[in-house]
Simulated scan of single mutants.
Amino acid sequence: MTILSEERRLIQETAREFTMREVLPVANRLDPEQGDIPMALREKMAELGYFGILMPEEYGGLGLGAFEYCLVAEELSRGWMSVASIMARGNGMIGWEQMSEEQKRQYLPRIARGEFLGAFAMSEPGTGSDISGLSCRAVKDGDSYLITGNKYWCTFADGADYLMVMARTAPLTPERRYNGISMFIIPKKRGELPPGVSGAPIPKIGYFGFKTWELAFDNCRVPAENLVGEEGKGFFYATRGLEIPRVHTAARSIGLARGGLEDAIKYAKERVQFGNPISEFQAIRFKIAHMAAEIEASRQLMYHVCEQIDDGGRCDVEAAMVKYLAAEMSERVTSDALQIHGGAGYTKLYAVERYWRDARLTKIFEGTSEIQLRIISDRLLGKPSK
């Protein structure tokens, strides 16, 4: 069992106190009306350094690791998963490690300060987990690229200060499924989409606090200097960078489950039926015990994977395992928490319905549960012959 150091315990306690004081009241007020995360809350997160946890100190970040990042993410998600997710618009944006030194000096200090947050435009209407099938294209035009095509599931596209866009710079052929995809950074005005880009919000059933967009690129001009890394290597940058986002999703899943558990315990002690608090009924007691055990098991695996990442080892399979187990656990635990609330849980008068709705999404984004099982089984059994 991983025992937290004094420094990590302080980071955890600070994030926990911040969440209960600042995040949870905002979530309880704004999520039911699908409101956006207030700028004032983002500014408080920035003061604590939450957008630069993973950023090197030389660029103004805290220079910490995946372990500390996930400690904070779990706590924030206990209040509102969307707040833990907006933190990733700084730390977790795929591609920043591949930036040129000039790009890093231009962008990373502002990202670490929370002044320059991004949105990642990778998925497309016909392409979700199969990144190699992207069809949005970027055509060289003098000292620029012209990007044309559609993107889907681009969360925070309007509120972000830049888009990180995956586009194909070489034709899609059976031989070029993995090569020929490039990555571009497109700075823009906050609250607007870049010139040459239009879009509309997708009507979601949860994950409120910001909008998630469908985007249409129509000859969006991007200077060639905004290419991130080498042309044609974007697929490898994206897949190489998924370990931290997946363990971060595990942390978010655990935070949601913990929110459900803690609310269920409180409600069970207060709710009286047949003359006794329902916390005295064995069915409820055993359900809560099982929920707590599942949460702790997922948390310990998450700590193990974080330590592997921070030690510099490749752990794509372990990251897939913890993402899969924590997401599946989160849906079960929040569903049980809602059940303990009875009819009250099926109202917006209690936060448990928010945890339940958002937990369902963790089984889909950052690679579905089925994709995680494919990654794990391919390592254990080898890839299928066809």
Rank of each mutant, 00 (worst) to 15 (best):
residue 65 G to R: 06
residue 284 I to L: 04
residue 297 A to T: 14
residue 312 G to L: 01
residue 95 G to P: 13
residue 227 L to Q: 12
residue 41 L to G: 01
residue 384 P to F: 05
residue 191 G to W: 07
residue 248 H to P: 00
residue 212 T to K: 04
residue 289 A to Q: 15
residue 11 I to Q: 07
residue 250 A to G: 05
residue 124 E to T: 11
residue 116 F to M: 09
residue 82 S to M: 12
residue 222 V to Q: 11
residue 156 F to M: 04
residue 371 I to C: 06
residue 215 L to D: 00
residue 146 L to E: 13
residue 252 R to V: 15
residue 34 Q to N: 12
residue 24 L to V: 13
residue 294 E to P: 01
residue 77 S to D: 11
residue 30 L to W: 03
residue 308 Q to T: 12
residue 144 S to F: 10
residue 222 V to K: 04
residue 203 P to W: 00
residue 54 L to I: 05
residue 82 S to N: 07
residue 162 Y to C: 11
residue 189 K to C: 03
residue 167 A to G: 04
residue 148 T to K: 02
residue 2 T to M: 09
residue 92 G to M: 14
residue 131 I to S: 07
residue 59 Y to W: 08
residue 237 Y to C: 03
residue 183 M to P: 03
residue 155 T to W: 06
residue 143 D to M: 10
residue 58 E to Q: 13
residue 71 L to F: 03
residue 136 C to Y: 01
residue 300 Q to W: 00
residue 117 L to K: 06
residue 10 L to P: 00
residue 222 V to M: 06
residue 80 W to R: 13
residue 163 L to R: 05
residue 185 I to W: 01
residue 131 I to V: 15
residue 87 M to V: 14
residue 306 C to E: 02
residue 301 L to M: 13
residue 37 I to Y: 04
residue 85 S to F: 08
residue 380 L to K: 10
residue 97 E to V: 12
residue 92 G to Y: 10
residue 270 E to I: 03
residue 66 A to R: 05
residue 348 K to S: 13
residue 245 P to Q: 03
residue 89 R to L: 14
residue 213 W to D: 00
residue 172 L to V: 05
residue 190 R to H: 10
residue 303 Y to A: 07
residue 46 A to S: 09
residue 278 I to D: 02
residue 133 G to D: 14
residue 371 I to E: 15
residue 226 N to Y: 06
residue 358 D to Q: 11
residue 363 K to N: 12
residue 43 E to I: 08
residue 148 T to H: 02
residue 89 R to K: 14
residue 261 L to F: 09
residue 16 R to Q: 13
residue 50 Y to L: 11
residue 376 I to K: 05
residue 100 S to P: 08
residue 183 M to I: 12
residue 116 F to V: 07
residue 125 P to Q: 12
residue 199 G to Y: 02
residue 323 K to L: 06
residue 214 E to N: 07
residue 343 G to R: 02
residue 323 K to G: 03
residue 231 E to Y: 07
residue 309 I to N: 09
residue 109 P to S: 01
residue 41 L to Y: 04
